[in-house]
Write a protein that binds this DNA or RNA. Structure first.
Length: 887
RNA sequence: GGGCGGUUAGCUCAGCUGGCUAGAGCAUUUGGUUUACACCCAAAGGGUCGGGGGUUCGAAUCCCUCACCGCCCACCA
């Protein structure tokens, strides 16, 4: 135990720096598979290896750390599997950008192999940033088990899964309509496309009939795609165009003729009812093309410029430049009819932030509908539970409509698809390693979608496909904590992968975190500049303060409005706790024995002491229950209220009397303080790991080689039973504090400084209250900072001077003020009070004379209502008495 | 178009399966050098619980409906 004086204010920085390395080096974070022990495990949602910590990570990882630390203290064998994600496209683009800025080199100039080496170098140098930042937060990850999605082991798992699914026919290669990002020049999955409402134009223009009998007017938002048109469609039942079906039109700006076809896709109520069909560049048109056997003309290069099929005048133009030229040329040709303003949604690439192109391309896909079935069942059966439960709805909706997953990406950084082509024979070989057969084999250039490794994470981190003891003891994991934004990307796919490859769900509970927004409700983003750096916050307020605050303000299931100032709450709380401990230290005699009330005769405890022990017991039960229900914010509120409101404001204050008096009482008081503090520190540790560890040592509760991390977590089961502690006693203690507050209130109302001692009289409501209050006179005198307090069953004798009063549960407290009080004022106050009481009584009586209420309300509610009415009547009587005494 | 969430004090939010006079923090006002803490203490003011309807003895809470805000999915040639 340190013997140095505790500073007046808690300084987080030094404490945090001190403890983390101690915990880590002593191996406290490491979980070992152990037969016969209860195991608890969590896998981290692996942050991007290029990432830096943001508040989303803070919330997410604090929640996991709370779960993990608590389970460790409950005596379970715990492992929190950490790691990072290679984040294919994101990382590739980041390194590319740095290379371009610093050396003016593109990845193409460098070549595939050299570029990949560069990414590895970059990863090795900067990839640890977020991992170090997580340590600052205090997360107790099992770092010995840290993994990276492109580790050899995990890559092996990816290849194995790919080969297996290919052999089962789940994975196939095919030419399909996909989402294409012209900036990243790669295919994207449907989930990587973000739709934005944008202001656009709706162009109406003519396609002249080839026989010269007139023209069709079509309407489109994308005129530049007309070079890929292979038909114009009208609805089969559309009267206006019946006679034209089967004819052809001259496609303007080209020398092609295209047919007019009848297809129900054409909506007579939209635009002109005529729609141009571009099968190679629009999903709906693709379907129409399939139905009518239309040719597909791809008119675009991978970078979004027009190719030679667009004609010499347009080829090479960017798609949006081309649009302008097409419009101008149509106008020149006199074919443009009108241009309308329109708001429509356009798909954007998540990474490139440019409009994507839908086009037909040769890609690798995974059929998901069969994989989805057992995964849906697992959630439907309750084997996997979602918190909040409503997210199951989103899950089912997606799973029921699941589409094939485009898993190939035209980037270099990632798991290269284990497929080889023989150009001579046209064979395709898919296997764990390159084919040894004769002939020239060329490996597939594409890599897999990042999520194709993430979906294996819960078992690949444990060494799958090897049959490891980790898998045996830690799989399935218990809890998963993640954001609802990746329910499709990750959560659903992990469930499918677990069911498919492990024949077992990957986790039992999924807790979906809130999304953090700024004070105006906007999403946090770098470009808006409204995304605070958590490391700055930690430096300013402390990691514990950040953790505590963010949980305190995070409602379950709805968005959080965050601002740095809100961390003051956690900082202030930490400081409050620090000073409560500091107060205890200043009393001397810290003893290890006291933390467990050893050597203290429990039957001699004072009512206050019994009361605080009960409160602590209650808090322990409550916190555990709240955490079992994943109601983190409630758990934190509960601790805050009991520690600040009950322990500091009431108990510590009232204990000062006993401490001052010394003797046996003092030792007992110290022991109860120690007991309360120790339990508070234990309960709080998962939320505020640093300060609780520091204080546990400062207070002498632990030896230097011990840690609060390894102590037993308080629960309802290990609560301390205190003799002669019933509800009635609790009520009396509460009542005493209430009277004290009433006494202070009187001083404040009459502008008497609290520092000035004043005499009081208390009229107790009954002999029991009188007896109790008398036994607590010292305490009351101190709490009110009174001179002299008389307690009896009689009211204040007004002949001795006017005494304003306040009523409380246990009695009425009078502050005799002689000439300082205006009697009329007092009378008015009391008359108002009387009126108010009469109003309440009237309401209460009305309720109790309501036959319906008496007949239908449950008995306890009726009894409570009666007691309440009695209480009101008593107060009214007391009020009338007071009025009479003044009159 | 379909789904989900939100609307309670000036602000941010509690309020569980309906049941005493709807709570907390911040902010505001007032007072305070009581031997832990001004990152503090004491006290005060402030809400017809988004509108309307219904169920019920009783509704912030359950149902219907409308409005507004936000998110997700589908679609918008």
């Amino acid at each position: 135990m340190s013997t140095t004086e505790m500073p007046k204010a808690y300084e987080a920085a030094d404490v945090e720096k001190k403890w983390y390395p101690i915990w880590e080096s002593r191996g406290y974070f490491h979980g070992k598979p152990t037969e016969g022990k209860e195991h608890y495990s969590v896998v981290i949602p692996p942050p991007n290896v290029t990432g830096v910590l943001h508040l989303g990570h803070v919330l997410n990882n604090t929640l996991q750390d709370i779960l993990v630390r608590r389970h460790r203290m409950l005596g379970h064998e715990v492992s929190w599997f950490p790691g990072t994600d290679h984040a294919g496209l994101a990382t590739e683009r980041k390194v590319e950008r740095v290379m371009l800025e610093k050396e003016n080199v593109t990845r193409e100039q460098l070549g595939r192999e050299a570029f990949i080496n560069r990414v590895w170098e970059w990863k090795n140098e900067y990839g640890g940033t977020i991992i170090q930042q997580l340590r600052r937060l205090g997360t107790s990850c099992d770092w010995e088990r840290e993994r990276f999605t492109m580790d050899e082991g995990l890559s092996h798992a990816v290849r194995k899964v790919f080969v297996e699914l290919y052999n089962k026919g789940v994975i196939y290669r095919g030419s399909r309509m996909i989402n294409w990002c012209p900036v990243s020049k790669t295919a994207l999955s449907d989930e990587e496309v973000i739709y934005k409402e944008i202001n656009g134009k709706f162009y109406h223009y003519q396609y002249p009939l080839s026989d010269g009998s007139g023209a069709l007017v079509i309407a489109t938002t994308r005129p530049e795609t007309m070079f890929g048109d292979t038909a114009v469609a009208v609805h089969p039942d559309d009267e206006r165009y019946q006679h034209m079906i089967g004819k052809t039109v001259d496609l303007p700006l080209t020398d092609r003729k295209i047919p007019i076809i009848a297809d129900f896709h054409a909506d007579p109520t939209k635009g002109t009812g005529c729609v141009k069909i571009t099968p190679a560049h629009d999903p709906n048109d693709y379907e129409v093309g399939q139905r009518h056997n239309l040719p597909m003309i791809n008119i675009m290069n991978p970078d979004g410029t027009m190719n030679s099929r667009s004609g010499v005048d347009y080829q090479g133009l960017d798609r949006f430049e081309c649009r302008k030229k097409v419009i101008a040329d149509l106008e020149k040709a006199g074919l443009m009819v009108k241009i309308e303003d329109i708001v429509h949604s356009v798909g954007y690439s998540e990474r490139g932030d440019v409009p994507i192109e839908t086009l037909v391309s040769e890609q690798w896909f995974a059929r998901m509908n069969e994989l989805a079935k057992p995964a849906m069942e697992a959630v439907r059966d309750g084997k996997i539970k979602f918190y909040p439960e409503r997210w199951t709805k989103t899950y089912f909706h997606w799973m029921e409509n699941i589409k094939d997953w485009c898993i190939s990406r035209q980037v270099w950084w990632g798991h290269r698809i284990p497929a080889w082509y023989n150009d001579e024979t046209g064979e395709i070989y898919v296997g764990m390693d390159a084919p040894e057969k004769n002939g020239t084999w060329r490996q597939e250039e594409d890599v897999l979608d990042t999520w194709f490794s993430s979906w294996l994470w819960p078992f690949s981190v444990m060494g799958w496909p090897e049959k490891t003891s980790e898998l045996k003891m830690f799989y399935p994991t218990t809890d998963l904590v993640t954001g609802p934004d990746i329910i499709f990307f990750w959560v659903a796919r992990m469930i499918m992968a677990g069911c498919e490859f492990m024949d077992e769900i990957p986790f039992r509970n999924v807790y979906f975190t809130s999304i953090i927004r700024d004070e105006q409700g906007r999403k946090l983003s770098k470009s808006l500049g409204n995304s605070p750096d958590p490391i700055d916050v930690i430096n300013t307020y402390g990691a514990d303060a950040l953790r505590f605050s963010i949980i305190y303000i995070a409602p379950t299931g709805i968005d959080i409005r965050y601002s740095n100032e809100k961390c003051e709450l956690g900082r202030n709380f930490a400081n409050k706790l620090w000073n409560a401990c500091r107060f205890r230290r200043l009393q001397g005699n810290t003893s290890l024995a006291f933390r467990d009330l050893n050597g203290i005769a429990l039957n001699k405890l004072t009512p206050d002491e019994k009361w605080i022990i009960q409160r602590i017991n209650w808090m322990a039960a409550e916190v555990n229950q709240m955490l079992d229900e994943y109601r983190f914010d409630h758990a934190v509120h509960c601790i805050y209220d009991v520690v600040w409101g009950d322990f500091c404001d009431l108990f510590i204050e009232s204990s000062k009397v006993r401490l001052r008096n010394g003797g046996e009482n003092k030792e007992q008081a110290l022991a109860v303080l120690d007991f309360a503090i120790w339990r508070i520190l234990l309960l709080l540790h998962p939320f505020m790991p640093y300060i609780t560890e520091e204080l546990a040592h400062q207070m002498g509760f632990l030896n230097d080689d011990e840690s609060i991390m390894k102590a037993e977590y308080p629960t309802a089961c290990n609560a301390v039973e205190i003799p002669d502690t019933d509800e009635q006693l609790m009520r009396l203690v509460r009542g005493k504090f209430e009277i004290a507050a009433a006494g202070r209130n009187l001083k404040a109302s009459y502008d008497i400084p609290n520092g000035k001692k004043a005499d009081y009289h208390i009229k107790a409501v009954n002999p029991e209250a009188a007896e109790f209050l008398k036994s607590e006179t010292d305490s009351l005198t101190f709490l009110v900072n009174a001179g002299n307090i008389t307690i009896s069953l009689d009211g204040w004798d007004a002949s001795a001077g006017v005494a304003p009063s306040v009523m409380a549960e246990l009695g009425t407290i009078y502050l005799p003020l002689k000439d300082l009080v205006d009697v009329n004022n007092e009378l008015k106050k009391l008359t108002d009070q009387k009126k108010q009481l009469q109003g309440w009584i009237k309401g209460s009586e009305a309720k109790l004379s309501n036959q319906g209420f008496l007949a239908k309300a449950p008995e306890n509610v009726i009894n409570e209502a009666k007691e309440h009415l009695d209480g009101l009547k008593l107060k009214l009587a007391r009020t009338e008495e007071l009025i009479a005494s003044l009159g």
